[in-house]
Design a protein around this nucleic acid. Structure first.
Lengths: 172, 172
DNA sequence: TAGTCTATATATAAGCC
DNA sequence: TGGCTTATATATAGACT
């Protein structure tokens, strides 16, 4: 869409490349914004240019907090579907590696593993509930300076990313 | 861009909405792909439709693994800038809450806190190095079925998201 | 790097399968 | 949903600021 049709390959001239980058970034964001409004959908866009700072975009109509809040407000059924607990357990396990490496103790190993499972299931649920309640109160991420709360948001996002990828891998 | 100009507001008719959603999603992905190729930039696109499954997209020309790998291959200086250690420490602290809640023990509290700091700094560095080395060998995420490794990728991504947001907040 | 200006390439609305 | 078709709205190449 321009005076000439251009080839789809890397632009070598740096000036031309960064000019096209800023124009296209703007266009992409506009499209994302339009789609979010028209189709009532949540979009997160992460753009790393080779030269400028990385940028995380999300439509103005849908603040990042609201996107995550909306996900955290899913019905019990939907949440159960997306956050299936065995996946969540594995995620949780991975984040607390120190607690899962003493299986060679004097106690019965099988019994210990079973105990761990029960504990972790409960902890995973607690973790999820905690994230959910905090996200519910989250309105304007730009005004938040508490890094711990950002981290909780991000942990939530990462759980979602994990399951999205899992679904995509399973689907082929 | 069509037979008629449409208003920028939520489409109420569900059939029309999902039709437009699939068309626009396709268009948005095409634009993202083009921009990635032309401008040599990395893009991650996360789309949640209200009805269908959530989808994580990234240009075919730039597998997600390569995007993260590239970030993990930043020079020491760049990495130091993006992963400033105080931020990383807080992130790490948050992920291991159980280790930071027994400050009311019989031991000297100040000394304990200082000990904790030293330990956490080292652990944060180890965590970062571990992520980096694993990501370096990562080529094709679609073939990976080990959830633990996905989680490490995601933790890395989350660290990056955290710092992007931090920079954006600081910049206003 | 970001904006402006036109001509032109592209995306997409509507409609139907 | 996913794919046609065609008319039309929009994005953007190139040149310049």
């Amino acid at each position: 869409m321009g005076r000439k049709k251009i080839e789809l390959k890397k632009i070598e001239c740096p000036k031309e490349k960064s000019s096209k980058f800023s124009k296209r970034k703007k266009g992409l964001l506009k499209k994302a914004e339009e789609m979010a409004v028209l189709c009532d959908s949540d979009i997160i866009l992460l753009v790393f240019s080779p030269t400028s700072k990385p940028n995380l975009f999300y439509p103005h109509s849908r603040p990042l907090g609201r996107i995550l809040e909306r996900l955290s407000n899913m019905s019990e059924y939907e949440r159960e579907e997306r956050f299936d607990l065995s996946t969540l357990m594995k995620l949780f396990k991975n984040k607390n590696p120190n607690e899962n490496h003493n299986h060679s103790s004097g106690r019965d190993e099988v019994q210990l593993q079973e105990d761990d499972k029960v504990i972790e299931l409960g902890e995973a649920r607690e973790l999820l509930d905690e994230n959910t309640s905090i996200l519910r109160n989250w309105q304007d991420p730009h005004r938040v300076d508490d890094l711990a709360r950002l981290t909780i948001m991000e942990d939530h996002l990462v759980s979602i990313l994990s399951l999205i990828k899992k679904v995509q891998i399973e689907q082929g």
